[in-house]
Design a protein around this nucleic acid. Structure first.
Lengths: 163, 163
DNA sequence: GTCCATGCAAACCTTTTGCACTATA
DNA sequence: TATAGTGCAAAAGGTTTGCATGGAC
């Protein structure tokens, strides 16, 4: 385990506030998430724990991630891959969107002031009280374009025709 | 099966163009999706097939939905519920976003010109070639607000402190 | 008659749960 | 020492696949 980060200490405090035990496993999982700048899957988290010589059951990883999400120190992401990814929230912009390469899966974060406006406008229009949003732009990253990656186009010949 | 819609005919044509058999099951699944204005889950599609007296295996439903998505007549949606939803594309705005109630699951569609601009701006900035995007705003719908629905708040006392 | 689709069940994958055992506070 | 966490394996939930049978063309 590396030297404690601010997030590390905050998570310990969260556990204490909630009257929950601070265990080696919990702090190890938290540390993996906090020391990564990526959007980690559970599989990736387990791999990093193994690299560190930590032998932690899958169930404990899931249970700890649940605590991290509850503490709001970590955000759960779903890019439609069939599994979730986890991203820590501290020392990065609190609200950001994702640009995702459909070919290689590379993820770039960006900020958009416009989206905040859309959220407010639409929420007011329909009487919703907005809680959060997600904006994802999918496309081909520069590297995949350079590699000549192509996108499957296989639809009906003219989907907009009136028939 | 109701009277053939334009989408119905387009799907038949798609199958023929691809040299695939036009079967009763495929057309029944397509019809359920095309005659609904909702975002249907596989479970809901199966229920509607049962109501119509169609007895179609789950695997066939999935395989047909795959064809419908490939044909681009139907779009697959993932609202993070743990399963997919399917929405037909014709006779509605081609590009729209979703406003989703976190309490009751109600979905409202809306359009945003701003998002198109964000997509272009960000794609150009990072050299991506944009393919598609998704914007979802989550919140409490008017009905759930009126019912006094509350949102869980359980995070660390001050996640932004420097420690 | 040739392919391909269908239906059923088993397999798959991610995530959750039950339970005996262990560790925290 | 009491309470809660851990690990393992089984279960759960959605989706996919293998294979013998049946239907489309």
């Amino acid at each position: 385990m590396s030297e404690p980060t601010a997030s590390h200490r905050l998570f310990r405090r969260y556990l204490q506030e909630q009257g929950l035990p601070v265990t080696r496993q919990r702090m190890a999982v938290a540390d993996v998430v906090f020391t990564s700048q990526e959007h980690l899957s559970v599989e990736e988290i387990e791999a990093r724990l193994r690299e560190r010589g930590e032998r932690i059951g899958k169930a404990t990883v899931y249970r700890t991630l649940d605590l991290l999400v509850r503490s709001r120190l970590v955000v759960e992401r779903d890019f439609g891959e069939g599994f979730k990814r986890y991203e820590h929230r501290l020392s990065r912009e609190p609200i950001h969107e994702h640009l995702i390469c459909v070919e290689c899966g590379k993820v770039v974060e960006f900020q958009s002031w416009e989206v905040q406006e859309v959220e407010s406008r639409i929420a007011a229009l329909y009487g919703f009280r907005p809680v959060r949003h997600r904006l994802e732009v999918y496309g081909l990253c520069p590297a995949c374009q350079a590699r000549g990656a192509k996108l499957a186009t296989d639809g009906v010949t003219c989907p907009i025709e009136t028939v």
